[in-house]
């Protein structure tokens, strides 16, 4: 029995913490997507998101699935953290005349091409495609996570899919 399973067994079925823990690996993958595959930032974002959800700062009212709610919190936290990091790093870089880039993640060979192609898409396109292809969300569900209209999500989905196909076709 893994540590995660043991923790879930100990927790009551209604325990929000246990439910969040069950989503943890996928939530980390989602945080990686929201953070432009910056692992350090993704970890920080996840830490902050969990505290928000479990402390009640971000209240889960049960109007949507917990996964939709948690992913929404992660996305908003990532957006705000990325903005902050961009501001601070930009100032420091200007001061020191450096270019600040996150440490590149070592991708497994079978998905390296996909990760490289995703890096060339816009953030929204990446997020919609991740939710639909990796998490089996519908486009409507992805729109709910991203806090955008369904029409807008559909446009991001269609354009992202076309561009991704072109990029992956170019690498194969």
């Amino acid at each position: 029995m893994t540590t995660m399973e043991a923790t879930i067994d100990r927790a009551a079925p209604s325990d929000l913490g246990a439910e969040v823990e069950a989503l943890h690996p996928d939530a980390f993958a989602w945080a990686m997507t929201c953070c432009g595959r910056d692992r350090t930032l993704a970890e920080e974002v996840l830490q902050m998101s969990y505290v928000k959800v479990l402390s009640g700062e971000a209240r889960f009212a049960g109007r949507s699935a917990l996964k939709t709610f948690l992913y929404g919190v992660i996305r908003r936290t990532a957006a705000s953290e990325r903005r902050r990091v961009r501001l601070v790093a930009g100032r420091i870089a200007r001061f020191a005349r450096l270019s600040v880039r996150p440490t590149p993640v070592e991708e497994p060979p079978d998905v390296a091409a996909l990760a490289a192609a995703l890096a060339r898409l816009s953030g929204r396109q990446r997020e919609v495609l991740h939710l639909v292809f990796a998490e089996d969300f519908t486009v409507e569900g992805a729109a709910a996570v991203l806090g955008i209209g369904v029409g807008s999500a559909r446009v991001h989905y269609d354009r992202g899919k076309k561009r991704l196909k072109a990029f992956l076709g170019g690498t194969r």
Binding site: G17, F28, A29, E43, V111, H130
Partner: peptide, 20 residues
Amino acid sequence: LFRSLRDADGGRAPSFAATL
């Protein structure tokens, strides 16, 4: 491919307890 990437990321995730 997307699922492989998700699983690869999930496999490298820090533990839930440490994150929390």
